[in-house]
Design a protein around this nucleic acid. Structure first.
Lengths: 340, 340
DNA sequence: TTGAAAGCGCTAACAG
DNA sequence: CTGTTAGCGCTTTCAA
């Protein structure tokens, strides 16, 4: 087993003090050029690796960023956002720890606690669908650990939030459906506990109203579970007296499944019924027909959220920094699933 | 900002020593029941949270497990495996740090170094497609940090490996294609630097031979890049003098894209040409036609790899523990993309 | 520009 | 069963 060297070893060999080595390694301004070079050389020679544990303990700060997301699988969005986060973290010398809440509040609480215990410098989180209390996040804040919400936010917590314009995205794609001549729209929504479900629902409803359509009669099938039973949903839509001619799903994953079951039921998309999703998952482009969706700047959300978090972590005067509430634009991608 | 209490605070209040508090908290056998209770109560009252940094530094061990995977997005397999890893880690009191190599060796090296620097207890890794040197892993091993490979292994390193029977999976699905009456098979393989590409290729070739088919003439389109240019690949297959009647893709993601382009080219699947994938991604079931694939026990791979790693971490006598090389079974899922 | 000394919060012998 | 004493490896005053 290879010997692990410490600043002590370097100091001894160079016949200087530990403190000087420590300073040199951190490129501290008041260490002479020569000393620094000597230290660097020796560090290189010994393959010295700083013990981050000790460093963090002594400096009472860490280079860790905790990320909590509902789930990685099945949601291209989160994977993309995560990439954005990792890029920014890396550029700034932070390491990210990723946790999944599996859409469960209790699990989210556990993960946040674990992160706080690991003394992360800050937390980036996208709330689980069950999250209706925020004590776990407040605990982090109380310990002076900044928290930034991304994508799935809440107005019950005073923290920075980077989200997407879910309302407008939903409004726009609904308008798109109407523009395409569909008039009897249905919406498969997500659990109303989720801010994004609410906003997308509102966008849908308002677009109907805006076009003089009877929003009260609009068919809305609410799925408390994000992975809905698509077959059941489709059967229900098809059994209505006034069958919808278009269905806007709150997620691409729902749309993919709905599309399948509609086709299995013998309907033609988009002739008999149009299908639209939300998220901009690349897989929508590979379906037949290609599915119209609302593109989100997933990677950019990650980037912005991470940048903001790091700023909050590194700013002494949090008071005057305040909080930011950034809403990024969405864009309708019109494809053949909604264009007759 | 809330005060963060330490064992010192508890000790003072209870008028006992820090060491006793430390022991009590860890449920050390030789602390009296009463003392323990008192300590627990006080800890609870103060909302004491152990400083893991300090704990780890003092004990020279951590409860961190580092995981390095090629990429999270686009590959359901890794997300699933990760879930398995997290489950086991959690059950055993470990926290996992996930890193992506983005299929790049340099990035993989950086991530492994960062993990070693963070003093992880062990590393779970699925090699990037570029990985052809193993110095970075050797460095970890030299520091007595166990490394366990999962899914994508190598025979150039003496470590435990948990993989899937790629060879047999490929062999079986090729046999399945032949059984269905296809005789002019093509294979879209991955980069040969990847053990899984090699094994799947070998399985394919051997199945052909085994059936008296001319394996030398078999069409193999090798994609150095895992995200192949499906259009180009399809065009090439279709422009052959002797057009293949079945194509076995080394990944589901490839299969999905190939399916799309084949259909765009006016071919009927599986009548004109059959398409099979590999991985068992749930999305294959939602395609039209549903895609036949080779199911891998993704979650279980994660579970087994994590269990083994933890065992290696916690065993003093590594010598007699040795290494394990576990190959989990695969299963052909026959669907309509390969059944006329 | 450098060094000495104290300490981050915890664990781990060693005594008692 | 409990306390004392040393650290873990690094950062950070405070002096020099």
């Amino acid at each position: 087993m290879a010997k692990v060297y410490t600043i002590h070893d370097i100091a001894i060999r160079l016949n200087i003090s530990k403190s000087t080595v420590s300073r040199a390694l951190r490129n501290h301004p008041d260490v002479s050029k020569e000393t620094k070079q000597a230290v660097f050389d020796m560090a290189e020679k010994l393959n010295y690796q700083k013990n981050i544990l000790a460093s963090n303990l002594a400096s009472k700060s860490t280079n860790l960023i905790g990320v909590v997301i509902p789930e990685i699988a099945r949601q291209h969005f989160f994977a993309q956002a995560l990439s954005g986060i990792q890029k920014v973290a890396k550029e700034n010398g932070y390491i990210v720890m990723v946790c999944q809440s599996n859409e469960e509040l209790q699990e989210e609480i556990n993960q946040v606690r674990a992160l706080v215990n690991s003394r992360v410098a800050g937390i980036l989180i996208s709330l689980s669908k069950e999250t209706n209390s925020f004590g776990h996040l407040q605990e982090a804040l109380d310990r002076n650990i900044p928290v930034v919400l991304f994508d799935r936010g809440t107005d019950q917590l005073e923290v920075s939030q980077i989200t997407v314009d879910d309302y407008k995205g939903a409004f726009d794609i609904t308008q798109h459906l109407i523009d395409q001549g569909y008039s009897n729209l249905a919406h498969l929504s997500g659990p109303m506990s989720l801010s994004i479900s609410q906003k997308r629902y509102n966008g849908f409803i308002d677009a109907l109203k805006n076009n003089g359509l009877n929003s009260a009669e609009a068919v809305v099938y609410q799925c408390d579970n994000l992975s809905l039973d698509a077959k059941e949903a489709v059967d229900r839509l098809l059994s209505m007296k006034k069958q919808p001619d278009a269905v806007f799903c709150m997620s691409d994953y729902m749309a993919i499944q709905v599309l399948k079951h509609l086709k299995d039921s013998g309907l033609k998309v988009p002739q008999d019924i149009a299908v639209a999703g939300f998220a901009g998952d690349p897989i929508t482009e590979l379906m037949e027909p290609q599915i119209s969706t609302v593109e989100q700047p997933a990677f950019d959300i990650g980037v912005q959220a991470a940048k903001r978090l790091i700023m909050e972590v590194e700013t002494e005067d949090k008071e005057t920094l305040g909080f930011v509430n950034k809403v990024l634009p969405t864009k309708v991608i019109s494809r053949s699933s909604t264009v007759k």
